[in-house]
């Protein structure tokens, strides 16, 4: 730098050197995702358009939609789609009610209790799903805790079959998802000024009315994200249906496992994968769109 004593001559700044954009930092991760997720999934979807041939996993053969026709023409196949949908929907519904209740319990708890409730309630979220599902198998088996308790109380004469039914699958899934739902709702609840429900009560609103008219509308965003997360996790869950519904749970994911690991009909299995993905996307976008419409009037 030169030292000058005279007043400086004003001048335009030189064109700045363009630094390398940090956007390039996404490149390694992006390459990884493209090669390990997007291309493989695309490849698999393309494979679904090749004639079914057990054992074959290459791309040879003509393009055809025969696999899709086969899926939609046989009740044994398409019933898995329907069953997956209603089991997931029921799971999501029950989870929503229980998760909402749980979120309200946490929200209204005193700060001292709150940490403990959160710890007790949310730490199961981190516990291995296999271990938790095993716990339900102990509870719900033919000679499980529930049956033994009911027998001892004389409510039933014979053990009732719960394991390997859709009910077992739903119970197991709800248990896995309730903390997720509670967290989503809680995020929304915490944005509400606690004075709003109080104010409503001073106008004579009952607790029920406060819940229905104030809390519920204000928690739509949290509820919606909870519903989407739970529904998409439910239709794609594998461990719980496989263990609690048995190999013939009739759910799409266990059917996929069979096609790829047992029957080895990968091209037909690819149809199931494609349908599962499509289902996930449709559900996600429609719930999000619905929530956006419901909150459009008051959120930004």
């Amino acid at each position: 730098m030169a030292l000058t004593d005279t007043a400086p001559a004003p001048r335009a700044a030189p064109a700045p050197r363009k630094p390398v954009s940090p956007a390039w930092l996404t490149l390694p991760g992006l390459c990884f995702l493209v090669f390990v997720l997007l291309l493989p999934v695309g490849w698999l979807m393309a494979l679904s358009l090749k004639p079914s041939m057990p054992g074959a996993f290459t791309m040879e053969g003509d393009w055809t939609i025969a696999n899709y026709l086969r899926f939609f023409s046989q009740p044994f196949y398409y019933s898995t789609l329907i069953k997956t949908l209603w089991v997931s929907a029921l799971t999501t519904g029950i989870t929503a009610v229980l998760g909402y209740a749980l979120a309200l319990i946490i929200w209204t708890a005193s700060p001292a209790k709150r940490g403990w409730i959160v710890l007790i309630v949310l730490s199961p979220l981190l516990v291995s799903i296999v271990a938790r599902t095993y716990g339900w198998m102990i509870m719900l088996g033919d000679r499980g805790i529930l049956n033994q308790a009911l027998l001892a109380l004389g409510v039933i004469e014979e053990p009732i079959q719960i394991m390997y039914t859709s009910a077992a699958v739903i119970v197991g899934l709800v248990h896995v998802f309730v903390p997720f739902m509670a967290l989503c709702v809680l995020t929304s609840l915490e944005k509400i000024d606690p004075k709003v429900p109080e104010a409503a009560m001073t106008f004579g609103a009952s607790r029920w009315a406060v819940l229905r008219r104030i809390l519920l509308p204000l928690t739509v965003p949290g509820l919606a994200s909870g519903l989407t997360i739970v529904f998409s996790l439910a239709i794609s869950s594998y461990v719980t249906p496989a263990l609690m519904g048995g190999p013939r749970s009739g759910m799409l994911t266990t059917f996929i496992y069979q096609q790829f690991a047992v029957t080895l009909d990968w091209r037909f299995g690819a149809v199931l994968v494609t349908l599962l993905l499509a289902l996930t996307l449709v559900v996600l976008t429609s719930i999000l769109a619905l929530a956006a419409r419901m909150t459009a009037t008051w959120s930004k």
Binding site: M1, L3, T4, P8, A9, P10, R11, A12, A13, P16
Partner: peptide, 16 residues
């Protein structure tokens, strides 16, 4: 950085 003009500290040009 300014688009135009000069910044000095004790007479020394520190614009850049």
């Amino acid at each position: 950085r300014p688009d135009y003009g000069v910044l000095q500290m004790d007479g020394r040009d520190i614009t850049h």
